[in-house]
Design a protein around this nucleic acid. Sequence first.
RNA 1: GCCCGGAUGGUGGAAUUGGUAGACACACGGGACUUAAAAUCCCGAGGACCCGGAAGGGUCCGUGCCGGUUCGAGUCCGGCUCCGGGCACCA
Length: 825
Amino acid sequence: MEDRYRAKAIEDKWQRIWEENRTFQVTENPGKPKYYVLEMFPYPSGRIHMGHVRVYAIGDVIARFRRMKGYNVLHPMGWDAFGLPAENAAIERGIHPAKWTTENIVYMRDQLKKMGISYDWDREIATCDPEYYRWEQLVFIRMLERGLAYRKRSTVNWCPSCQTVLANEQVEGGRCWRCESEVSKRDIDGWFFKITAYADELLDGCDRLTGWPERVIAMQKNWIGRSEGAEFDLPVVGYPDLKIRVFTTRPDTGFGMTYAVLAPEHPLVDQLVTEPSEQAEVERFRAEVLKQSEQERVAEDRPKHGLRLSARVINPFSGREIPLFIADYVLMIYGTGAIMAVPGEDQRDWDFAKTHELDIIETVNRPAEWSGEAFTGDGIKINSGFLNGLTVAGAKRRAIDWLVERGLGEARVNYRLRDWGISRQRYWGAPIPVIYCNACGMVPEREENLPVVLPHDVQISGKGGSPLTTHAAFVSAACPRCGGPARRETDTMDTFVESSWYFLRYCSPRFEGGIVERDAAVYWMPVDQYIGGIEHAVLHLLYARFYTKVLRDLGLVKVDEPFNALLSQGMVVKDGAKMSKSKGNVVSDDVIRDKYGADTGRLFELFAGPPEKDLEWSDQGVEGAYRFLTRLWRFTFQHREALIAARSDFSPNDLPGDLRNLYRLIHRTIKKVTEDIESRFHFNTAIAAIMELLNALSASVQDESKREIGTPVIKAGLETIITMLYPFVPHIASELWESLDHRGGLDAVTWPQYSEAALEEEQLLIVVQVNGKVRGKITVSADVDQTRIESEALQDQKVRSFLDGKKVQKVIHVPRRLVNIVVEG
RNA sequence: GCCCGGAUGGUGGAAUUGGUAGACACACGGGACUUAAAAUCCCGAGGACCCGGAAGGGUCCGUGCCGGUUCGAGUCCGGCUCCGGGCACCA
């Protein structure tokens, strides 16, 4: 053993050993409990930096800890390898996306190995591999057969910079999630996955995801946006064949409907407006709305614009004729694209009614002190005919019954969630396995022809459109049905499709008979602990849940939910901003490794705070982590020979008091560290406890007089420290373990166990309070009874000076902790 | 506007069920070692005030703000302030 801690040599050595021994390769083993831990796989964008390392360090602690606990641990890694940056690199630097991606993978794989993350590299996958995406194409065809994948023309989000369509989930505040360009609207044909068919199941499932952070659940529920209400028809005056269908969550307010509104692009508008001058007015209004929606979309308090139509409708509740508008505050994409307006109980309708001088009828009795505008609270119904006297909830039910009885409408649930648009007009993605035949129309590719391989020989210019559209050999195809000339689909799939099932592929990554080998999936799924950034709270995590349910319904897997527990780790922040290449504040992993070693980098990130919080990078914090490892190294080096020579067994009862305290501390630390890792992921406090134990060992060895009898306790303490540090800093822990004459590394060593007997205290420190303020502390033997403790507390010198002859009203005794003496005054 | 979080020393953070607030670490100050520095080791430390020659001892205040429950509140309840995040004419 060297006297100095040389991280690099140690890390190289153990990484080589792990590789040669295939230490982390696993197979299904029904004899052992399984544990599947997974970090969200990265996009191979170039280099990993210390901002990225955090999530892998967290995953590695969990993986290594679970192995020591006797689990058969699946901890795989792969690459989310399709995506735009590869194409951008091709445009900017003339490198083929495949080459760029592969080179990045090679580099990043090496970085992860150098950080000592314990992956089963035999299971590595890259989503751009045809042997990967072929299964996605097969699932696509199955989804097509069941109507879960469909093609339609629709108004979509278009990113002018990425030159492609974006899903709703990929637009953030009107901007592209990736490049932050302003997103515009476009009418385009494209492919959709029918995620709305699973809206209820995805929502209900949220409540069963008890291992997920609440805020992620809240975001998903929010995104799905279920609202219950009713849909019913408004007859149009003078048009006996026309009815306007409206959706409302407040059917109880029907009597307060004083006008109705259609979305400007509502198809009925053209039938209602026949007179040329009104038609012209409508056209002018629509153009205005279109223009304004571009600019004013983000405005705080958007004024509501509307145009009154000559047509009028009937309020079926009151039987009254009411005016009809088209207005920009009603959206075609939600509900029926038409609303009943109730200004008394809806603030938007109230605002609109005020500007257009429309009637306002209150249908809920206001509280006495109420002074607002529209009232949305609960109360007793008024001005509402047969609903009068009911509460809001009761009136809702009654109103729906009434609509149903008269055949006017029915109860109805609406969702904010919309189908997932998966078409991307880009090259570097998985081809959609569909062919357009002049005779047969749209036909899926034959299964035996899968995969539809993305052609390699393309020219990527970046000047609009996918290079696939001009790739003759790819586009021209024979119709799978009639054999006639046909054209291949040139859209590729959203890369979120690949990441919706990669966790399944890891179960049997080379399986050639399907997406996943059934037995492997049954054994490994679901993922026991998933770890990733909060930015995927709705995107990836919602898609993956949906896709898993689809695969279940296709009979391919048995689980309902892919991720049993989720840990959303915080960002790594430096100089007030998220550590990222574009912000120019990255700390390079090899600088940290060269100067301190991978273990130090890992330890710092795990110690600086709990994983779910943001972590502020601190060079001094890194120094501190390094100092701790150096101290541990030196301590081991100094006492090594004595410790190797020392006995491993000793009788705790024969130890003098202070060594028995140390022995107790060892067991207390095991308990704390185990619980902190296992149930809370509070690695920072686990590490702090280990540091305290080392501090105690250091203090103890100063006492020369106890050398003889103390060494076995020190040995037990140090070996416990080294073993428990292994998940955090595996290289130095392995090396120190070996230096203490242990063969075979730490990888197969079991996690230390604490003994309940060893935790028992002989002396208790009891806090004595007077009227809730700490006034003294007494030490008593643990077997002393309560009355004795209380009388000792009352007799304590300091305590007595506060009692000062006052009358003791009562004494509160919390066993083993404190005595609170309550006196008057 | 609605829905989630969060606020604790100079700093990152502890305090898991209401029971000694500030563990552990960073930074800082003092000391030892050294010709000197670095490294290392030891000691100190929430704030204000008081007693004492000193070592030391004591009192009060203190977990964003106001109030409540309780013998006792960082922790529970009500009302705010500020910060972060999500959604947002979704009927």
